[in-house]
Design a protein around this nucleic acid. Structure first.
Length: 485
RNA sequence: GGCCCCAUCGUCUAGUCAGGUCUAGGACAUCAGGUUUUCAUCCUGAUAACAGGGGUUCGAAUCCCCUUGGGGUCACCA
């Protein structure tokens, strides 16, 4: 089904932040291309000048590259089919549309947008299917050319056959058939001279030699229009794969009102690119061996695009969190450290050595990279002092806490060298000597040293802080306890 | 509303195309235990689904039809 060399593409619109859906579709396209030794192209779909945002294009490049979804041909790196920005390809669309005009597959329409909007409203009121009324469909060709020559504003529309039906095979869903009477005479060229998505997409896919069109399901219903354009241009169809749309919890199409959708957001939160890709891959596809944590390489080995499921997956961050944690824990410590640094999650004043020391203590507790600083701030600077309430555990009293902290302070002072085994022995001795229960010793110490309820293993905390800082903080806690009411 | 797509645990899914091996498997989440100095990790277990109704068949989660539900789309946006 997918034999031969695949040329696949994505065509994001530079209209805002890089979207998670773009990454989702890019992942499938790129993987499919790579699997066959083919090419994955990036085309910028900037034909909508009103929604165009200049900064968006670079952000899309950056986000996709960050994810590791790099492309073989694109606006920034060029390629044999350049240019890869649709706004720079107008001459080609013009030429193709002339061809369509010539053979009668397209025609000029001089109706104003306003007129048409009113007509649509009327149709709705009359409970008719809203659509182009066909006013200019049979305009005399000579007259049409003359009006165009006099620069009368107009669009160019596709002449959809009134009878019959148009069908194609979607490789994921099977044959799709739509009655031509249901297909509107789609605008091909807008009055500003730019092509619509429908025309530009087909022309470019032909020009670029795209063999496999993998895109979101929202395009399924407009594919018959594209098929008609391919036919009018006398070009064979590529293979179509409409992958399910990512959903909000209420099952509506994923939107920024109900979900984080910006790839930048995920990066800022400290989600690993590996985890994002892994999670996205699991939306609609499942690995044959049930091992759900994997990297891009293995995905490329196992992925079969025809096995993508048809159901619409709810984009649920809870599982992403789990996957992210798994990838964090599976990463080599040096690699994780480097990543933390690269992604800007190491506090500015922190040395690489210090970070390397503390990182192993929090690795298994981190869900997202952004948590690093919060979970380790006690190590880099003295935290806000704990309160007396915090220093007295539920199972303890002021007595037991005083006893624990005083004892620890004394014993620690005598330890040399200050190493985990010796610290552990000292704590064991304290427990024994004063008949303290473990929480009665450990919790006051934990609060005294880290000012938090949940910390890494206490012995490691003490060892990493060192003798002086540990004793200092214990003393500080003792003062708080003594002066407590 | 018309058209198109879809329908297995709360969520992601396996199984559906080639009907029996499915008293429906896995993962996340949840709950209960275990390990344990907290949190987390890790380990064990539990709860939890074939939307409904008709067919076809010896036999249906799997095939067909209807209903219901959800979604998408009906722009000079992509």
């Amino acid at each position: 089904m997918t034999e031969g060399s695949v040329r696949a593409r994505i065509a994001p619109s530079p209209t805002g932040d890089p979207h998670v859906g773009t990454a989702y579709v890019a992942l499938f396209n790129r993987t499919l291309a790579r699997q066959t030794g083919g090419q994955f192209l990036l085309r910028i779909d900037d034909t909508d000048r009103s929604r165009y945002q200049a900064s968006s294009e670079q952000k899309i490049f950056d986000a996709l590259r960050w994810l590791g979804l790099d492309w073989d041909e694109g606006p920034d790196i060029g390629g044999p089919c350049a240019p890869y920005r649709q706004s720079e390809r107008n001459a080609i669309y013009q030429q193709k549309v002339d061809q369509l005009l010539e053979c009668g597959s397209a025609y000029r329409c001089f109706c104003s947008a306003d007129t048409l909007a009113k007509a649509r409203e009327q149709q709705k009121q009359d409970k008719m299917r809203p659509g182009y009324p066909g006013t200019c469909r049979d305009l005399d060709r000579v007259e049409s050319s003359q009006r165009a020559a006099q620069e009368e504003p107009h669009v160019i529309r596709l002449r959809v056959p009134a009878e019959g039906e148009t069908s194609f095979v979607d490789q994921i869903r099977g044959e799709i058939r739509v009655a031509n009477s249901e297909i509107d005479d789609q605008v091909l060229i807008k009055s500003d001279g730019f092509p619509t998505y429908h025309l530009a997409n087909v022309v470019d896919d032909i020009e670029f030699g795209i063999t496999h069109v993998v895109r979101a399901e929202e395009w399924l219903i407009s594919t018959p229009k594209h098929v008609l354009i391919y036919q009018a241009l006398d070009h064979p169809l590529p293979r179509f794969f409409h992958v399910p749309l990512l959903r909000n919890a209420d099952h509506s199409k994923i939107s920024k009102r109900k979900n984080p959708v910006s790839l930048d957001w995920f990066r800022e939160q400290g989600y690993l690119k590996e985890a994002i890709l892994n999670f996205l891959a699991l939306m609609g596809w499942s690995p044959p061996d049930e091992e759900e944590v994997f990297d891009l390489d293995r995905f490329q080995q196992e992925f079969n695009i025809e096995k993508i499921s048809t159901g619409a997956p709810v984009f649920d961050l809870v599982k992403l969190d789990w996957i992210n944690g798994m990838h964090i824990r599976r990463m080599e410590p040096q690699v994780l450290l480097q990543r933390l640094a690269d992604e800007g999650f190491l506090p500015p004043a922190v040395s690489r050595e210090d970070a390397a020391t503390i990182l192993p203590l929090v690795t298994e507790r981190m869900v997202r990279l952004a948590e690093f600083s919060d979970r380790t701030d006690w190590y880099f600077a003295d935290p806000i002092a704990p309160t007396s309430e915090q220093l007295i555990p539920k199972k303890g009293t002021q007595e037991t806490s005083l006893c624990a902290l005083e004892g620890a302070s004394e014993l620690f002072a005598a330890i040399s060298p200050f190493e985990p085994a010796a610290i552990e022995a000292a704590l064991a001795q304290l427990l024994d000597q004063h008949s303290l229960k473990k929480p009665q010793l450990f919790m006051p110490l934990r609060w005294a040293l880290t000012s938090r309820q949940d910390s890494p293993d206490l012995i490691e905390v003490i060892a990493v802080l060192g003798k002086d800082r540990s004793i200092e903080r214990i003393q500080r806690a003792l003062e708080i306890l003594v002066t407590a009411p």
